[in-house]
């Protein structure tokens, strides 16, 4: 029972911290996008427009709730909650410092992958439940995409597992603390695996250039087409949560997690995560998006074999050189 309470305490803290950081992430993204487009971005609302995200949330809270007449009400209503919850759930096993971790599972990596895979269910529930053709197309795309990119994601995540010999995320970080960050050595495995992991993670969380389930120039707003108010807000939030948590996971698995000199570990973790988030947004605001079939071809023809080769190579490295 103690563990339950302790987990709840840590979990609550982590969740609140992540949710709060979202406001900053949102602001960063809008300002960054504006800079990249020679604009200014939100700045009227108060100095620097920092309270833009709270204003958005306050507004979304007040909007009327519309359920389309032909929608599947249960799916339609509860998909957003599930979507946001699943997005947060991934963060449970990420160690933000040596002590701050929601639940340090022995099979942490497996849990990460499993929780990530569940993420497609609310998306599909939303798309199917809306009974809207744009949403349905988005949902079908999301399913195909998530299911396909699951494979390279698992393969890429296997590389740190093989190299460190553990599925416990905190042990992977400790290993990197004692040896090297995986991206530094063996770099010929770490760098490709890191890139593969990030690509697959982007695809899983539907960010550009992999955001075809939500492609607003084709599918209006994709799966969220029929959602109003805070239900849409939850999907919107889940999208950002995915990005932040994917960054945190990548930082833990490949960039040494909370490892770093001079400052307490948690700051390093925050800095690395934030750096990854900025990189993702940089990609987002400078690339076009793929077409769904190109995305699938990219996955099955290039990423999957690359992942298999990486897994075999890292096993060879561990057995013969390690």
């Amino acid at each position: 029972m103690n563990e339950f309470l302790q987990g709840g305490l840590y979990g609550g803290g982590i969740i609140v911290a992540i949710m709060t950081s979202l406001l900053f992430v949102l602001w960063t993204e809008r300002k960054m996008a504006a800079r990249m487009q020679s604009r200014i971005g939100p700045n009227i609302i108060d100095p620097l427009g920092f309270l833009q995200a709270p204003a958005d949330v306050l507004k979304l809270l007040q909007k009327e709730d519309i359920v389309p007449e032909k929608a599947d009400r249960a799916l339609f209503n509860y998909a957003p909650v599930l979507g946001a919850a699943v997005a947060i759930a991934v963060a449970a096993v990420v160690p933000f410092s040596a002590t701050i971790v929601g639940a340090d599972l022995d099979v942490g990596v497996l849990y990460l992958l499993a929780a990530g895979a569940v993420g497609v269910l609310p998306v599909f529930a939303a798309g199917w439940g809306s009974n809207n053709k744009f949403a349905l197309l988005g949902a079908m795309r999301a399913i195909a995409q998530s299911v396909s990119y699951e494979v390279p994601l698992v393969l890429a995540a296997l590389v740190p597992v093989i190299l460190t010999g553990s599925m416990k995320v905190s042990e992977i970080v400790t290993f990197q603390q004692n040896h090297h960050w995986l991206i530094v050595w063996p770099f010929f495995l770490g760098v490709p695996a890191f890139v593969l992991f990030m690509l697959a993670m982007l695809a899983e969380s539907n960010r550009i250039p992999f955001d075809i389930p939500e492609a607003e120039s084709e599918l209006v707003a994709g799966i969220t087409t029929e959602y109003t108010g805070m239900k849409f807000g939850l999907f919107y939030m889940a999208e950002y949560l995915h990005t932040v948590i994917a960054s945190a996971v990548a930082a833990s698995l490949f960039l040494g997690g909370y490892d770093g000199p001079f400052a307490p570990g948690v700051w390093w973790m925050v800095a690395k995560t934030f750096g990854m988030v900025v990189a993702i947004y940089y990609l987002r605001w400078s690339l076009m998006r793929f077409r769904s079939d190109q995305l699938m071809a990219l996955c099955w023809r290039w990423l999957v074999p690359t992942g298999v080769v990486l897994v075999v190579a890292s096993a060879l490295f561990v057995v013969f050189a390690g």
Partner: peptide, 21 residues
């Protein structure tokens, strides 16, 4: 055209807004 390909929340809008500039 870039907006159509890249979306209003992506690289497409960057090209779009630069063209407008």
């Amino acid at each position: 055209f870039s907006l159509d390909l890249g979306g209003a929340l992506g690289g497409g809008s960057t090209v779009f807004i630069h063209c407008f500039r």
